[in-house]
Nucleic acid binder design. Structure first.
Length: 570
RNA sequence: CGGGGCGUAGCGCAGCCUGGUAGCGCGUCUGGUUCGGGACCAGAAGGUCCCGGGUUCAAAUCCCGGCGCCCCGACCA
């Protein structure tokens, strides 16, 4: 491809509404342009990257036994009413009416559509297993789209749905998909971790997220440095330490607690600083509202409580931090001074709290805390793992490992769904005994655009993008440094030879100065350049430049093709 | 949806407070000189100052209403 013919509108300055580096670079390097909030045009360079990622995904999915199809983007409301998601999904589901005033929606995901297909076409256990996938544009009317392709409203996603006759078979399929995903992201040249994850609104009982490691990642993940355990911080377990108990502990009251004045000191750090104690001598009391009424959740002052863990411990449907009004009603004090002593709502404590003695808690009275409190001073409904895991914690799965904290960008997630959708939509087949049995499902997504954005977050420098070779829009850029006849001819020859060798090359045939060409090369992130100038040409040499390191090598013109092939395969 | 901010040339911004000929840098176009790291000289094009209403002799500027966008929060494949 000739640079002069391509649409690559690079910008010297980044448009101001770009926050994260991948968004800035995609705009600056001429990969995307915004059409509306969260809606982007993919320019030719970006399109090539997306197609590269799609190809890898397609190959690995097919190799893992899945077949590609394409579901409609617009679906009738009836289908969504059947699973109840027409009401549950909320405003994220973009709804439209056709000319007959019938309700439709743009697909934000396709469980309904695929299940509808499968229930009408699959009859017998002999038809199973099936694994169907598509690569398609989806639309979710996000509350706040941001970060360019990372969280758009319109986005390209690969979604696969598997159908098995029983749980054992479905779990095998799930494992096979995890393997396929590992191959996919490895082939994309990305550093990633597969982590245990919660299942969110999709539902199901087992799930892994695939997180591309990048400091700018939105998700915190914890990974063991000794074994394979890794989990999203929302889910990461905390190992039971010595002395932790499942049930409420007995008394260990040593001395009386004292009420002290702590004017205006609410946050644990403020209280600790004011009383000149460490934050881990504090007990944080958080008031929540749940479908079972208000509850208190207690963690050590330097920890943070995970709502999902508390929800599981309580066994309730939903949970949210209480509003000021509820806090006042329950504790009879303004928020910031809640404590467990004298509370008459259920009190859930973190297992670690059982180890604490002589600690500081809120007094349930404005501007006051209690010092020297102990476990016997209040009732505990239940103790369990409700705090967020942090780096340095012992691994919950192996003996010797410690957890390390990483930041990640979620690019894919796999779910074991069970019969959640197939049950609701009566997707059944006849089993070997001739009985109707509900199909067991799994679903598996990969954000294609987000993978591209994550690749940039992970691979860039101050000059621009540094694509991993397998997903780069071009593998090599040929850069003639001036318009001399000899230089141009040599560049053309090289470009033609590359094409013949099956190497994807971009020829920068623009009449631009060397600096401009170098800068654009670095900005758009092509992994390698072959630089041709009058100086090198005199010695029949061309310069091979690596984007990542900036290192250059002079090689004889004749050996350029084998040299680049060798470099690329190493 | 709550809080904050922005909207002026393709991009980045100034001008607005204190009303009076719409500006700067980059980019673009023409000519020339240059040519291994975002050149220089000369000339030029390019504007619904987000939209609508109001105040005023006069509005980018003041007032009212709307729209769009960004950030923080809540939410989230």
């Amino acid at each position: 491809m000739r640079y002069s013919r391509m649409l690559i509108p690079t910008l010297r300055e980044a448009p101001k509404d770009a926050e994260v580096v991948s968004h800035q670079l995609m705009l600056r390097a001429g990969y995307i342009r915004k059409l509306a909030a969260g809606v982007y045009t993919y320019l030719p360079l970006c399109f090539r990257v997306l197609k590269k990622i799609e190809r890898i995904v397609r190959e690995e999915m097919t190799a893992a036994g899945a077949q590609e199809l394409l579901l409609p983007i617009v679906m009738p409301a009836e289908l969504w009413k059947e699973t109840g998601r027409w009401d549950y999904y909320g405003k994220e589901l973009l709804r439209i009416k056709d000319r007959h005033e019938r309700d439709f929606c743009f697909g934000p995901t396709h469980e309904e559509a695929i299940t509808d297909l499968v229930r009408s076409e699959l009859r017998s256990w002999r038809d199973l297993p099936k694994n169907l996938f598509q690569i398609q544009t989806k639309f979710r009317d996000e509350i706040r789209p941001r970060f360019g392709l990372m969280r758009g409203r319109e986005f390209i996603m690969k979604d696969a749905y598997s159908f098995d006759v029983d749980e054992a078979s479905a779990r095998k399929t799930y494992a096979r998909m995890v393997e396929a995903y590992e191959k996919i992201f490895s082939r994309c040249g990305l550093k990633f971790r597969a982590v245990e994850a919660g299942t969110g609104t999709i539902g199901g009982s087992l799930s892994h997220e695939f997180q591309v490691l990048a400091d700018s990642g939105e998700d915190a993940i914890l990974a063991c440095n000794a074994c394979k355990y890794a989990a999203n911080v929302e889910k990461a377990e905390v190992k039971k330490g010595p002395g932790t108990r499942d049930q409420g502990p007995g008394t260990q009251n040593k001395k009386e607690y004292h009420k002290v004045k702590t004017p205006g000191k609410k946050a644990a750090e403020e209280v600790a600083a004011f009383l000149k104690v460490k934050t881990d001598q504090l007990l944080k009391t958080l008031i929540f509202e749940t479908d079972q009424g208000p509850v208190a959740g207690l963690v050590r002052g330097d920890r943070s409580l995970k709502e999902a863990k508390l929800r599981d411990l309580i066994g309730c449907e939903w949970i949210r931090l209480a509003e000021e009004e509820t806090v006042r009603k329950v504790t009879k004090a303004p928020s910031g001074f809640a404590g467990p002593v004298g509370l008459n709502i259920p009190v859930y404590v973190d297992q670690e709290v059982a180890l604490m003695k002589d600690f500081v808690v809120g007094a349930n009275e404005g501007d006051h805390h209690l010092t020297g409190a102990n476990l016997g001073d209040f009732n505990i409904t239940k103790a369990g793992d409700i705090r967020a895991a942090v780096g340095g914690d012992l691994c919950p799965r192996c003996e010797k490992g410690k957890l390390e904290e990483h930041r990640g960008i979620e690019v894919g997630q796999v779910f074991y769904l069970g019969t959640k959708y197939s049950g609701a939509m009566k997707a059944q087949v006849l089993d070997k005994e001739g009985k109707q049995t509900t199909i067991v499902m799994g679903c598996y997504g990969i954000g294609i655009g987000r993978t591209a954005a994550a690749a940039i977050e992970q691979n860039h420098d101050e000059k621009g993008i540094i694509w991993p070779l397998p997903i780069a829009p071009f593998q090599v850029e040929v850069i003639p440094l001036n318009q001399d006849q000899a230089v141009l001819e040599a560049a053309e020859k090289l470009y033609a030879d590359l094409g013949e060798a099956g190497i994807e090359a971009l020829l920068d045939d623009r009449d631009e100065r060397a600096g401009v060409k170098f800068s654009d090369f670095e900005l758009i992130g092509i992994p390698y350049a072959l630089v041709i100038g009058a100086r090198g040409l005199k010695n029949k040499e061309v310069e091979l430049k690596e984007r990542k390191t900036g290192k250059t090598n002079n090689i004889p013109l004749k050996e350029a093709i084998p040299a680049i092939q060798k470099t690329m395969s190493s």
